[in-house]
Amino acid sequence: MKIIISSILLLFVITIQAQKTSFSSEALNDTFVSFEGNNITFSEILESHKGKTILIDIWAGWCKDCIIGMPKVKELQKKNKDVVFLFLSLDKTQETWKKVIDKYKMEGEHYFIPLGWKSPFCSSIDLDWVPRYMIVNPEGEISLYKAIKADDEILIEILKK
């Protein structure tokens, strides 16, 4: 009986974690670098798109799955013209980051995460894999906390709304 109750509680905790609907203050205050080289907080980025649906793509140029997923992201962009696409990079250097963006002709807003995996942003969202896709709705709430494929059925369904 104890095992069953423990299992149910663990499942409940995992479900609650998976359903985060807002970013922590640590994530919001984390500083990224824009493609132009300016520092900007994550909250400032979100604020600049207030009232819009935002798809966040956390990726890296060294990530095979990220590169494979890029054509699927481009398809999403074609089908969802009213969605803001934010690309947050975990590349090791800004030079590499910019080269990969140019090489794959990635369109959208691009930001570099200087502290990488150990950044307050990545830690607060429990980042354990890239690519990682998140969706923020026009009200500023997280509608999709975690998807690892751009053709994830739930991701596509949320974008249709």
Rank of each mutant, 00 (worst) to 15 (best):
K50Y: 15
G140A: 03
K149P: 09
E157I: 04
F23L: 03
R132M: 09
L115A: 13
L10Q: 10
Y145H: 05
E75A: 10
A150I: 13
S43W: 10
S34P: 06
A147L: 05
I14M: 03
I142H: 10
G37H: 07
K98H: 04
V84F: 05
G140R: 04
E44Q: 11
I67M: 07
I8W: 06
K118L: 02
K64L: 08
S7E: 12
D57C: 06
V130N: 01
E95H: 08
S34T: 15
K74R: 15
K50S: 14
A150L: 12
V33S: 06
C66Q: 01
E153T: 13
I148H: 09
S123E: 13
G61F: 13
I135C: 06
G116R: 08
I56A: 00
S24K: 00
K81C: 11
S143N: 14
C63M: 04
M70N: 08
K50A: 12
L144Y: 12
N29H: 03
V84H: 02
D152V: 11
F32C: 04
K81Y: 12
Y111S: 05
P120M: 07
L159M: 04
K105I: 10
L9A: 08
K98P: 00
P114K: 09
W117Y: 13
M70E: 10
L11E: 14
V13S: 10
K92C: 05
G116D: 13
W59E: 04
E47G: 14
E44L: 03
S24Q: 01
K146W: 14
L10I: 15
W62F: 10
I4W: 08
D152C: 04
E157G: 05
I45T: 15
C66E: 02
I68P: 01
T53S: 00
G61Q: 04
M1Q: 07
L28R: 04
V84K: 02
L115H: 15
V33A: 06
F32T: 00
N39Q: 15
S34F: 15
T96I: 14
R132C: 02
F12L: 10
K103N: 06
Y111D: 02
Y145A: 07
I156G: 06
W129Y: 14
P138G: 00
N80L: 06
D82F: 02
A147I: 09
I40Y: 11
S22C: 03
L10C: 15
K52L: 01
S119C: 03
E36S: 11
M1W: 08
F42S: 00
T15Q: 06
F42H: 00
